[in-house]
């Protein structure tokens, strides 16, 4: 596994020590899951859902909103109206 590429995709900064450690651990886990390759799954549908349910839908009716002040109170940075982040392009 290309640990740096995966960590970048996952947006997790890793130290060199972590890269080394996770690389080794994940390689061991991947070696273990390799056993699945031996299973004959020719023509077997993947299980996306275990339930035999049709999609439940809701009517287009407005429901309860959250209180902005309560929501922003939990935010790391805000200006009373919006969440603040470093400038994005």
């Amino acid at each position: 596994m290309d640990i740096e590429k995966v960590a970048k995709l996952a947006r997790i900064e890793l130290t060199d020590a972590e890269k080394e450690r996770f690389s080794a651990e994940l390689d061991a886990i991947l070696a273990y899951v390799e056993e699945l390759a031996a299973v004959d799954t020719e023509g077997v549908e993947p299980t996306t859902h275990v339930l035999p349910l049709a999609l439940a839908m809701r009517a287009d009716e407005v429901g309860e909103k959250l209180d902005r002040a309560e929501v922003l109170a939990a935010a790391p940075a805000h200006d009373g109206h919006a969440f603040i982040v470093p400038k994005v392009l």
Binding site: V33, L36, A37, V39, T41, V44, E45, P46, T47, T48, V50
Partner: peptide, 15 residues
Amino acid sequence: DAYYKKAQQVRTLIR
């Protein structure tokens, strides 16, 4: 395909 999809196929066999 090799990992996620394969696992979901084996999951079908387990079911």
